[in-house]
Design a protein around this nucleic acid. Sequence first.
DNA 1: TTTTTATTTAGAATTATTCTAAACTATTGA
DNA 2: TCAATAGTTTAGAATAATTCTAAATAAAAA
Lengths: 149, 149
Amino acid sequence: MVTMENVNTHTNQNESHQTLTDKLRGVGLRATRQRLDIGSLLFSGKYRHVTAESLHDEAIAAGMKISLATIYNALNQFTDVGLLREVLVDPTRTYFDTNTSSHHHFFNIDNGHLTDIPHDEINVSCLPTLPDGQIIDGVDVLIRIKPVA
Amino acid sequence: MVTMENVNTHTNQNESHQTLTDKLRGVGLRATRQRLDIGSLLFSGKYRHVTAESLHDEAIAAGMKISLATIYNALNQFTDVGLLREVLVDPTRTYFDTNTSSHHHFFNIDNGHLTDIPHDEINVSCLPTLPDGQIIDGVDVLIRIKPVA
DNA sequence: TTTTTATTTAGAATTATTCTAAACTATTGA
DNA sequence: TCAATAGTTTAGAATAATTCTAAATAAAAA
Ligand SMILES: [Mn+2]
Ligand SMILES: [Mn+2]
Ligand SMILES: [Zn+2]
Ligand SMILES: [Zn+2]
């Protein structure tokens, strides 16, 4: 007996896989097992903020067979083609963000957690004139937060 | 013959030296030759954005005898006591800022140059509510700029 | 298929930064 | 004034994130 739930689950997996393969091919990358594995961790559901190490740990914990070098390769390639963006918050490690739209962040300096702030929830009235011959590449607002007291 | 200019220069040097010594003692640091040298580069005049390496190069070029380790020590100590602040713009190196007041930055992604934006020239209307039990430690606005075309 | 080109990965290399520990210096207080 | 004490400097080793190399492997093209 095939329930609606089962059908959906199955269908979603296929769709998900297909979507990922298309997404990778669409940016000129081969849909290798490793990239599909990484992609399934990064692009299934909610937006995420990861480091190479944290993603590698997660992949290993999920039983995926993938080297840290490949994680670095994939994160950099995904970033280069616009599937990810970097977030500068910690001088000792690079954070990657699956939300590539223009948005801002809360950074919990106590535990290193990043939280998105929708673009329209922060109004940056940018009065200063740019240096001559320069244009804006992007605007990042980082609100560092910490526990009370 | 002692001109006004000479007097002033001499006086300023003394004052400068005195000020620096006081500044260091005021934060509980001994006024060593190395810290006075570094301080003279950092705190004489306009605000500056430096890296350990750039400051070391500059010190050596100025004939100062000081190791890179001491530059790192001093920059970290100065930061710890509030004489400097760090600016996050480049994942590969740490920038230190002699302007410790609340302000923002233009970052030229082409040449790595930082330019201050006075605090009051950017209006950050922060609508989002903070996660529970958290307070704001600081707000950083970074405007990445690049050459036209 | 066979060939070509891209990808993965172990391990070495790189690089910014920190650490160690011994020599040196500033400060203290007799 | 001068030893005692505590802080500072620094060469060189260590660390740690990231990148590189090159050989094996897998995907795409022919
Ligand atoms: Mn990159
Ligand atoms: Mn520090
Ligand atoms: Zn984000
Ligand atoms: Zn500044």
